[in-house]
Simulated assay, not measured.
Amino acid sequence: MNRELKRICVYLGSNPGNNPAYVAAAEALGRELAERSIGLVYGGSSTGLMGRLADTCLAEGGEVVGVIPERLVEKEIAHPGLTESRVVRTMHERKQLMADLSDAFIALPGGLGTLDEFFEVLTWNQIGYHAKPCGLLDVNGYYGFLAEHLDRMVAEGFLMPVHRSMVLTSPTPGELINRFVEYDPPVVDKWIEMKKGL
């Protein structure tokens, strides 16, 4: 399968983190998206990794669409120079619009919000609301423990192996996007395994 990617949604920290590798990865992804003429959809902030990603993509001539709730415009310091800014009322509206505008999803290093947004679209994928690729950009092993925990969920019977396979992981932006292009979503009609005696 050769999937067309017009826009990719990226979830990442509004803080820069403690390792310069995280900023470098955000900048590398921004350049990669612009070079491939793939638009960026993100949370609309000018700070932290979010700001560096947007600034780099814009500087390289890329399209950047920011989606931010009203109450976070000042707290996250909305980016003033985007291709397009969408201000919404709630976090729910933010997540839905970002998903609607995008053909794939990437999580870079970030905090609770990053995990919340990534796992929501991943869950939508699991239950068949969409079949768009979802991936972790595993910068400096940041998501290593999370990948191990997903494997633990499979081993303990809470996650089906086919759903575990929906989480694509790579240490570099180019490789991850290549995997998105080639992604062939599994056909799954259930996510609960019924066992005798339960």
Rank of each mutant, 00 (worst) to 15 (best):
N18H: 14
A131R: 14
E93L: 10
G51N: 10
G144C: 02
M153S: 13
L40F: 14
L150R: 04
D138Y: 06
T90I: 08
K195M: 07
E74I: 08
L122W: 15
P185I: 03
L49R: 00
T56S: 05
N19A: 13
L97G: 05
N178G: 11
H79Q: 09
A99T: 15
E60R: 11
E27N: 12
V67G: 00
E117T: 01
K196N: 09
V187L: 05
N19S: 15
G43Y: 04
E120G: 11
T56V: 06
P171V: 05
G157T: 09
D189L: 03
L5N: 01
G48L: 01
G43N: 10
L137R: 03
W124V: 01
M160R: 15
T90Q: 10
I77V: 15
C57R: 06
M91G: 09
K195S: 07
V23F: 00
H149M: 15
L97E: 14
V10G: 10
R71I: 12
E156R: 12
N2Y: 08
A28T: 11
K196C: 02
P109Q: 06
T83E: 00
M98N: 12
P16C: 03
D184K: 14
L101A: 01
E27P: 04
L137S: 07
H92P: 03
V188F: 04
L136T: 08
G13R: 06
I8N: 09
M153A: 14
K6A: 13
V188A: 06
I77R: 14
E76V: 10
A147D: 09
A34F: 10
V10D: 02
K190A: 05
V154G: 02
R31P: 00
E156V: 12
D55C: 02
E76Y: 05
E74K: 11
Y143K: 05
V23Q: 12
V162Q: 13
K6V: 06
G197K: 08
C9W: 10
R152S: 11
Y42G: 02
G13Q: 09
G61D: 12
P20L: 11
L5Q: 09
P20D: 12
R152Y: 12
M91P: 10
G144W: 00
D103N: 14
W124A: 13
V87M: 01
V121F: 01
S165K: 14
F180M: 12
A21V: 07
Y142F: 15
